[in-house]
Amino acid sequence: MLTDLLGISPQVLFGQLLLGLINGAFYAVLSLGLAVIFGLLNIVNFAHGALYMLGAFATLGLVQFFGIGYWGALLLAPVIVGAVGIVIERLFLRRLAGVDHLYGLLLTFGLALVIEGVFVKFFGSSGISYATPRQLEGAVNLGFMVLPYYRGWVVVASLAICLATWVLFERTKIGAYLRAGTENPRLLQAFGVNVPLLTTLAYGYGVGLAAFAGVLAAPITQVNPLMGSNLIIVVFAVVVIGGMGSILGAIATGMMMGVIEGLTKVFWPEASSTVIFLVMAIVLVIRPAGLFGKTA
């Protein structure tokens, strides 16, 4: 048996695989947003982690000021934060169209630092707890591990949103425009499609996905201003491994990296924050365009 070889019980192995998939679901949603943004705007959105954090804080704000609970937040927080994203795109990112990638990267990185800094100033670094929605409290004993209902929900919700995004991009007319915009924006414009609007909406959608992940995370991790900064670097590695701009690639790689990281947490926990970068380095050497990317 494999488990005998590795010196751990099958229970622990199954448990860790499942946890890996749960974390992978987060990576998938976040890297999907990044992939959408990169595909259309050619911008490496370093503010993604901060926007994910905004999603979680919006969840808190909605319950505190408007009495809107988790389910409402799941819908509203991505819309609100997506609107913030649209403002950012119109005010700042638009001006960087056509210049080197590096400028977009620096601008979004700076924005992330500013947003996080402001939130640390007002909310402190230990953050605020958000309760699990009542309907999803409790856990089920699977025999090999205790699975909190909420974590199960995270996987379902993430996969649903990933699937919806894929359908939107691959099976609808607006998706066809978006893909055409990725290939040749000028030609698309010549056909009378409002490409700048399309770009703005795509950024808003990508940001909305980040906020959606933020809402999902709120009951699990402490909602604190730095929750995104630890995650974002890993998610970037996931996108690089999957191939920039590939939707299916982002989803599949997210899940895969979640599992690899989960297993590392058992066999060599100290390396669990590094293993994804190791995979990234290997992939970059063997397939520079990423596992699912088209070779240029």
Binding site: Q16, L19, N23, L231, G262, K265, P269
Partner: peptide, 8 residues
């Protein structure tokens, strides 16, 4: 950020 694996 994620402690679930270590808790398990």
């Amino acid at each position: 950020s994620d402690f679930s694996s270590f808790i398990l």
